[in-house]
Nucleic acid binder design. Sequence first.
DNA 1: TCAGTTTTGTTCTCCCATTCACAAGCGCCT
DNA 2: AGGCGCTTGTGAATGGGAGAACAAAACTGA
Lengths: 227, 227
Amino acid sequence: MTARTHPHNAREIPEATVARLPVYLRALSALADQDIATCSSEELAAAAGVNSAKLRKDLSYLGSYGTRGVGYDVDYLRYQIAREIGVTQDWPVVIVGIGNLGHALANFSGFRSRGFRVVALLDADPLRQEEVVAGIDVRAFADLGEIVAEHGVAIGVISTPAHAAQAVADAMVSAGITSILNFAPTVIAVPDGVDVRKVDLSIELQILAYHEQRKSHDHRAAAEVAR
Amino acid sequence: MTARTHPHNAREIPEATVARLPVYLRALSALADQDIATCSSEELAAAAGVNSAKLRKDLSYLGSYGTRGVGYDVDYLRYQIAREIGVTQDWPVVIVGIGNLGHALANFSGFRSRGFRVVALLDADPLRQEEVVAGIDVRAFADLGEIVAEHGVAIGVISTPAHAAQAVADAMVSAGITSILNFAPTVIAVPDGVDVRKVDLSIELQILAYHEQRKSHDHRAAAEVAR
DNA sequence: TCAGTTTTGTTCTCCCATTCACAAGCGCCT
DNA sequence: AGGCGCTTGTGAATGGGAGAACAAAACTGA
């Protein structure tokens, strides 16, 4: 995560809070779908799976959008959070690497519904460039710079194999992309000012495995004690 | 994350460290592939994309596996971390929800190579149950209990749409699964003792969008100041 | 108008994680 | 054998987030 503490940023929202705002946004959308117009911090916290004190503190970083004794107006709060995150505007996104995962990402409806528009799918493999995925032509990786410039793309997604990821990241940075979501199972290096977030499937499973292993250790130890 | 602070757990490894151990494991594998037999904390930290002090502190929770003045033996350290995480053994895994993402997960080679074996793919849709994905028959969701019992499955992956996720989670818990990796864009509730990790693609993008938006605000503010 | 009820916004305290800085330890070279 | 350079492992300081607890505010009903 890039360190960016400029003095003119009056309200610095903590990173942990930023990571939860999208969760609140989704919970609010669910409430709105049920035609619920108002909710308390307790209710919203339950829907989002967090502590209500934490929720209130998070929201307080955005401003005072609640009414004491009443709660929050669902639509109003939803708009405020969306504005703060920046999903009231439209974000063009490119996806590089159209393998299994790239296909899934291209077809994922959750992107479009949250302000993200996939403007291009790129792959280095000429065979893949014949394909049409999710209604979008797969184009050559070499076209990246052109596409980024044309659509003003700021966000790129890497879903290539690990060995290609660094080269793709470098090309993205050169093209002017400043935020990268990396699904490739490798660490990529980028210059200051470029944000990278990493999603790693096997790491998540390994974390679960660690806890799972400890559970069975505990069981064995408990059985030991019981004897 | 389930709170499990049993008194007989002599060495309690911090959660933040647990989350990084798989990263170190991967970095060590990369070094081993380059026939590097020994590395310093500085080198390994660079490969893993972390601070060297943090790396050393993390490793110190496992024990003293380095040699002062020399560094770490790559293979030895790799084995020690793998053992600590529990990936020296084989973990059977079931995947429920064989849509686009489920396909990608089933075909993901990173699972198998890290000690995870997909023993079953399940879907509630009878049409999908005709398919064979990644060499595995897709079976009926109703078979979950049977399969979990037969293979001793402890870890389940949910890649269904959001509306189905809670029901799947409930069924997994009933069947005896105690660790869940949830890709569905919704919060799921589980009893104590069950670990859930969540991977949410659109949340990751929204976090990037927030920072991206702030970058352009900063630019505008900087231009303002320059005038 | 005013007491009572509800719920927010915020303060305070605790805990965990990160980072610095250095002593302890190891190998090498003379 | 002994000093020197290098690297680990850890104590201590710092920073940030989580949660409890409460005061301030708004609405309700008499």
